[in-house]
């Protein structure tokens, strides 16, 4: 019996940690049902369902959506909807591309010996450890230099000019997500016994069939974990997106930041609540994948 298990110190510190971590989230969610239009004070839930939005001073008295007034409000907000669409589009494309590249890199690092191998391995950690803002500025500088050069060299004008937008955000997300995917897949490959692949080839499978039928299914849980991690990183990335976005490529974090500088209404809370739900779902999926993987081995 572990003597620490029941010690009051452990119980109290555990409770404190949970309060510290989750209290802000609880408050945030609670305020998204706030009847006050000002986000500072909580004046109770918006009570009943009715046909019209009734405002009494600064308080919402009733709304057709009932307590979900701010969520309805949000869904009618075209800017939010477009930012959400951008965020998801970027996250999906960047996740797929970075998962493919990251997985291939992990396999190559595991399987082959080549010059600069340890350098390549080390360089994976650089984007992870350097401050994101440095990477953001770096990417911005690079892209604007390249775009500027292309625009002047080919004398592009008007719509043909290369400029910041969805494309630049997506490629910079791919750039910072690849190392995360590679490291996660590498961890999975660490214990991978190459005799599985040899057995497949021994039984008549060529390299490609061996990869498709044996290697890939066996590392799939690692690849999925990597992809989910990359997806969540992309969803809530602010710094790099801040430097690389342009007109029409505003993502949710950028939009919220913009809102905060103007007025704070419980719309922001409603948006955050939806967002938290999405991220929690992804994290939950990640957990399920990992625990299934563990119960297998």
């Amino acid at each position: 019996m572990n003597p620490f298990k029941r010690s009051p110190f452990v119980i109290i510190s555990t409770v404190l940690v949970y309060i510290f971590l989750y209290a802000p989230i609880v408050v945030l969610v609670l305020y998204s049902f706030n009847s006050s239009r000002v986000n500072i004070t909580f004046e109770g839930f918006i009570p009943t369902f009715s046909e019209r939005v009734v405002m009494d001073g600064s308080t919402v008295v009733s709304s057709p959506c009932g307590p979900f007034h701010w969520f309805c409000d949000l869904s009618k907000n075209r800017e939010v909807m477009s930012a959400a669409k951008n965020t998801l589009t970027i996250a999906f494309i960047a996740t797929i591309v970075s998962t493919i590249i990251g997985t291939m890199a992990a396999i190559a690092l595991q399987r082959y010996d080549f010059r600069l191998k340890s350098f390549s391995q080390l360089s994976l950690y650089v984007p992870i450890v350097i401050p994101e803002i440095v990477m953001g500025i770096g990417i911005l500088t690079l892209i604007s230099q390249v775009f500027g050069w292309v625009n002047t060299t080919f004398a592009l004008s008007g719509d043909a000019r290369l400029s910041m937008g969805l494309f630049t955000v997506t490629i910079s997300h791919i750039a910072f997500m690849v190392p995360f995917v590679t490291l996660v897949v590498q961890a999975r490959l660490q214990g991978f016994d190459k005799s599985f692949e040899e057995a497949a080839m021994d039984l008549g499978a060529n390299e490609w069939t061996t990869f498709r039928r044996v290697t890939f299914p066996m590392i799939l849980p690692g690849v999925l974990s990597g992809a989910l991690l990359a997806f969540t990183l992309s969803l809530d990335d602010f710094v790099i997106t801040f430097f690389t976005n342009g007109p029409g490529s505003t993502t949710l974090p950028i939009y919220v930041y913009g809102l905060l500088r103007r007025i704070i209404t419980p719309q922001v809370n409603a948006l955050s609540t939806v967002w938290i739900l999405i991220v929690f779902t992804v994290v939950l999926l990640l957990q399920i994948v990992q625990s299934r993987e563990q119960s297998k081995s």
Partner: peptide, 20 residues
């Protein structure tokens, strides 16, 4: 000649059965 073109088959020490 690669393994998949040799008419020999192997029983591995670790068995190397495909777990999935």
């Amino acid at each position: 000649t690669p393994p998949f073109q040799r008419k020999v088959n192997t029983v591995f020490q670790s068995y190397a059965l495909f777990q999935h």
